[in-house]
Nucleic acid binder design. Structure first.
Lengths: 252, 252
DNA sequence: GACATTTGTTCATATATCGCACAAAATGAA
DNA sequence: TTCATTTTGTGCGATATATGAACAAATGTC
């Protein structure tokens, strides 16, 4: 790609949108400039552009994103066949298991939820399509990382912030790589309260008919109800069933 | 705003992202140019920029969005307190009613779902945060339009594609405006299979402590289980209860 | 209230992007 | 195959944007 095939004003604007997040619903020009490491004048122009287009509101001091910004992410969810294809299977899976079922794909060091059928809330955080979790400590993340060449998985771990979320959280890269090998060999990953106390989950890969892993699906359950030791016998058969049902549908 | 406070390259890029949607998961440069009415060279640069940043994949012929694009919409969902604040109330509402409960806001002629607690699937389409429905034929849409000055509501109707989805769908602007008056007076809207055969829903506004309508919440139910005539007595008290609980939480 | 900081805005100019026109390549029909 | 049509890639002049400094305004501190 040539130098001139890159629209830096566009790239800068996207960076500004991403500066909003978590606890940052309102950003001043200076704050956004600091977060994006762009010039204040540049950020100001991007924010005013967003406001002009209705993607942001501006009260003269702070900018906030408007729901119109959801059109952008929705373009993906509506445009990609995968979420729509997975959804009915997750519904079925969730009903049979009596627990929440989700599907996700990898984006950098995170997994991104692309579909979900929730039974009840067991996590402190609310997961919806678009939600992100660190891959290294999520069951679907383990499955997705295990599907990569080991060098790539290691590179992603190197870029990850390996936080000790709970006493159970594995944070040693070598230990994680070993776990990926086990996941590859046995075809599933189980997380026992590594992300959040009280939450267990089990995941399997979703493979296309060519054998490429295109996503992961999981079932999450409260540890109080379903001890980690029981996750496998209770849910793995259901997950495998769903996996098998999906495979012929995924032509690549 | 001055002419030079607008980054047209950014605006053009956002338009390109929105060109993806519904049945358009893969776009060639020429297709995207047609949809956006932008110059091919411009669209090409925007698409290559998206690809370079990892927001899109490019196989040399077609571009597809990647899940990274969800970061943009997620910036809103994570940044805005409203969805997180509503979610537990929707969970509670949904459990008490035994039906799906949702919350939405207005974006142009559409309502946009910002939170949802689903019990089981009753609609043919899958609704998640970011999903959009035409406002004129959705219960939450009626509530949100009713909250606007009548001239504004009429302007939105004029821009809407008033489609006859079912035999029940109201499409006459005057009839709709009259219905908005009733909604304002009585404080709720009921939809009896106007969007989809077999689906009823009832919605109320979510008002801030200053009395501004900031969102709408609803309960949807299969018409076979809950006839429209029963929606009010069964669910309106629950909705009103939730509405009252939310009001003091919404400081503006 | 006065001072020091931070923030927002403007401006001139160097730089990058746009859209056109044309070239090259791919596609499809006969 | 050939030819027509469509699609994609590229060079260039005209136009729009980014930059960083300077200034103005607002904010915070003592």
């Amino acid at each position: 790609m040539r130098e001139t095939d890159f629209v830096s004003g566009f790239a800068r604007g996207l960076k500004v949108i991403e500066a909003f997040g978590e606890t940052r619903q309102r950003l001043s020009i200076a704050e956004a400039a600091k977060l994006t490491e762009l010039d204040r004048a540049t950020v100001r122009r991007s924010l005013l552009t967003l406001a002009e287009l209705g993607y942001a509101d501006y009260d003269g001091k702070f900018f906030t994103l408007t729901p119109k910004i959801l059109r952008l992410g929705h373009a993906y969810l509506a445009a990609t066949p995968l979420p729509a294809l997975l959804q009915p299977h997750l519904d079925h899976l969730s009903e049979k298991a009596g627990q929440s079922a989700s599907a996700s794909v990898l984006d950098g060091t995170d997994i991104v939820y692309i579909a979900r059928a929730s039974q009840r809330r067991v996590m402190s955080i609310n997961l919806t399509p678009g939600s992100r979790l660190p891959a290294y400590c999520a069951s679907m993340g383990r499955v997705l990382l295990a599907a990569l060449p080991e060098s790539e998985a290691r590179a992603i771990l190197a870029r990850s912030e390996l936080k000790q979320n709970t006493a159970n959280t594995k944070t040693d890269p070598d230990e994680l790589i070993a776990e990926f090998r086990r996941v590859r060999a046995e075809g599933y990953a189980i997380i026992d309260q590594e992300l959040e106390i009280g939450l267990c989950s089990i995941a399997v890969p979703v493979d296309s008919d060519r054998g490429e892993t295109v996503a992961a699906i999981n079932i999450g359950a409260p540890a109080a109800l379903v001890p980690a030791a029981e996750m496998k016998e209770r849910y793995l058969p259901l997950l495998k069933e769903t996996q098998a049902a999906l495979r012929p549908l995924l032509r690549r």
